[in-house]
Computed example of a mutant assay.
Amino acid sequence: MTAIRPFELAIPEDQLVALADRLDQTRWPEEEPVDDWSQGTRLAALRELVAYWRIEYDWRRCEARLNSIGQFTTEIDGLDIHFLHKRSSREDALPLIITHGWPGSVVEFLGVIDELVEPSDPAAPAFHVVAPSLPGYGFSGKPGQTGWGVERIARAWAELMQRLGYGHWVAQGGDWGAAVTTAIGQLAPDGCRGIHLNMPIGRPGPGDMESKDPKVLKALQRLGFYQQWDSGYSKQQSTRPQTIGYALVDSPVGLAAWMLEKVYFWTDNDGSPWDVLSMDQVIDDIMLYWLPATGASAARLYWESFGSFGEGIVAISAGASAFPGEILPAPREWAERTLTKLVYWNEVERGGHFAAWEQPELFVQELRACFAKMV
């Protein structure tokens, strides 16, 4: 049960044909009566994406890329965990476990893994990279019972690193990955030298509501926007994940619309979701929800843990990179209330919520700079 099993993707062709049929049979709503994204995913943008998906997109390209990195599964705590694992040729490489969030997947890291593992600059630090799919996401197993919240996932990730033979390691994450990585920091398992977050988690204190600090004011403004206009998905998934799950598992266009809205609002773009990510990249991510039918199982993580997102204190070494397009920016003083041993903090010049996906070079630089202070 503790075996590490090679995993190779080879999606049957009939599944891809069935997907094409569903795309052809889409029943479209009327166009939104506004000229922006204020009512959600715009019809024109979604039609453009779906047309590309149906005619030009090549799943086999993504499949081959994932297989070339190295995919594995192992059973932990009764559940199969899927993960990418690529070891460096460098003897001094530092083991790193890196965790995605929603609506992301391991494809967020396809642009950073090679550079982390085998740096183009021989003087740069190297990493052995482990990128697991969260339970209920991608090709990991779907929990059949409740209880798979971020604390349990953190324990599973510590077991995974031990099982892979890594006596010391570091952890990184954004979105749900930030919550899991924060939980790893709270757990402080043997071997974990420190953590890095590209979504620093922090909450305002009593005095912040009267603050004149521009960074605090920006954070409060973004928090207000999120709560009023941007959090409907989280309310639905944290209260009734099964209900939305039927639509997300049954309709590829519904799934794409649910996810594309967040690509638009959460990336650091200039007015189009394609300013920073290509259609191929976005559809690769959608496919990791569509093919294994994880719309409901992924949403259940919100039901499990959304109410306790980022709570608790991290006493081990921690670092954070604040990207300007983050959906819930946290000023350093907010982050330090959770990360009590903050050894690295940097405000990055560009990038949004999906840091590794949007700005792979900057993301790699941040990890190198942060973890150099820990080992």
Rank of each mutant, 00 (worst) to 15 (best):
G310M: 10
P95T: 04
F83E: 12
V129F: 12
S251L: 04
L9E: 14
L277S: 00
G207I: 00
V180T: 15
Y166M: 06
G205H: 05
L367T: 03
R155G: 07
V249I: 14
A45C: 14
I81H: 11
I11V: 15
L260W: 12
W345R: 08
W102A: 02
A93K: 01
Q162S: 08
D285V: 00
A256S: 14
G351K: 12
G224L: 03
W274Y: 15
G205S: 05
I153H: 07
F354G: 01
F306N: 11
L43Q: 13
G104T: 00
A315G: 06
R42H: 13
V50T: 09
S38P: 09
Y52G: 06
A322E: 13
A93G: 06
F323I: 11
G202M: 12
P214G: 09
F363K: 10
Q227D: 01
L217F: 02
D213F: 15
S297Y: 10
L342I: 01
L342G: 07
A369K: 14
D280W: 05
P324G: 12
V50N: 09
R42W: 11
F354N: 01
E115V: 07
S231K: 03
A64D: 13
V314S: 04
L260P: 12
Q365D: 14
F323R: 11
A315E: 15
P329N: 12
V150E: 06
